[in-house]
Design a protein around this nucleic acid. Structure first.
Lengths: 186, 186
DNA sequence: TCCAACATGTAAGGAGTTACATGATTTC
DNA sequence: GAAATCATGTAACTCCTTACATGTTGGA
């Protein structure tokens, strides 16, 4: 299994050109932030490893204020490794663990109102993320091909899944409300 | 953040009555397996901790063949802890990391056919899981309330999200196919 | 004057996976 | 005779998150 996917995320981000660790994090946040996040705790050690393995070369520039800038660039081997990875079947992710579902599953031990509250909270989050996906989708219209198609695919994933999650929240809230009125007869 | 959700999953499963670690794993697999999975490596240490904290009491029975059976039961404190947790807002899960999306996002560095292949593989997995959700949903019809409603909510989650994922796969395959024909003009 | 952005990293700790070790009984 | 089921646990390992430590420049 051994995902070690951070390596590949970094290689992927470096296809855009030479970057510092700091820049990689910021760009990850901005471009793939909705389905991928990296923190410094993973970025710096992994960049070091990639350099050790020769997939990346590091060039040092004097820092403009603050520490030196370490600029990383893909080597030929790095490009090969990335292309190779892109071709390999996707490793099955970690087993699912959805805390909300677990709580709802155990709903018989709680008041139905509590489940409804949890669902409303989730609904708000999902609705907000749906808005963001739609904004991104809109901004993407100006992007030239082939990136537009590829990027659009990832955004549409968020959009479609968020829509479904929203529908699920509404349906589930309705179901719990019906339970509630049935259990506490007027 | 400190999820430590395994504790609560175990408390939740023990609401069904006295169980051994072995049984808990099997029942988790059968009942909440689609959104929650536990292995022995987490179950046994956590049961020990729960016992130390007085949320569970353990009774030992001679094993029928093999080692002794350790049967665990919720204490009053255990029930309280569980009900308390059910009421608390859901902690935001781990940041998303979707390897397939990452690969598709970087699609410009690969052949469109490769992305299509990855999507077909995903599509097959999702279609299979959708079938399973529908079977479970069907089996649930005979369950008495209020469990039927609660359990149905978790199954519907799988069903609706799987449907959306399926639609996304099809749409994305279509988009990549159009790219393909555009790039390799007849 | 203070905060945000730029920029690097380490250390500690928690969570989770996998593989190993053991061994009887039941079923094919 | 082999394989699955019952049943316990540990140990090694990886991965990730969080907090800490440090320091400048430029803008509000």
């Amino acid at each position: 299994m051994t995902a070690a996917t951070t390596r590949y995320a970094l290689l992927g981000l470096l296809t855009a050109g030479e970057r510092t660790g700091y820049e990689l994090r910021a760009e990850a946040e901005a471009s793939v932030g909705h389905f991928w996040r990296e923190g410094y705790g993973r970025i710096y050690p992994n960049l070091r490893r990639l350099a050790d393995e020769g997939l990346v070369i590091t060039r040092t520039e004097p820092g403009r204020g603050g520490p030196e800038r370490h600029l990383h660039r893909l080597t030929e081997a790095g490009w090969r490794e990335l292309r190779d990875w892109l071709r390999r079947p996707v490793a099955s992710g970690p087993p699912p663990r959805d805390e909300l579902l677990l709580k709802l599953f155990l709903g018989r031990h709680a008041d139905p109102g509590e489940g409804i509250a949890l669902l409303h909270a989730r609904r708000d989050l999902v609705a907000a993320s749906l808005d963001r996906y739609r904004e991104i989708a809109h901004a993407l219209e100006n992007e030239p091909e082939p990136d537009r198609t590829h990027w659009r695919i990832t955004v549409r994933h968020g959009e479609l899944l968020a829509q479904a999650a929203l529908a699920w929240c509404d349906e589930s809230i309705g179901a719990l409300e019906r339970l509630e009125t049935r259990e506490e007869p007027a």
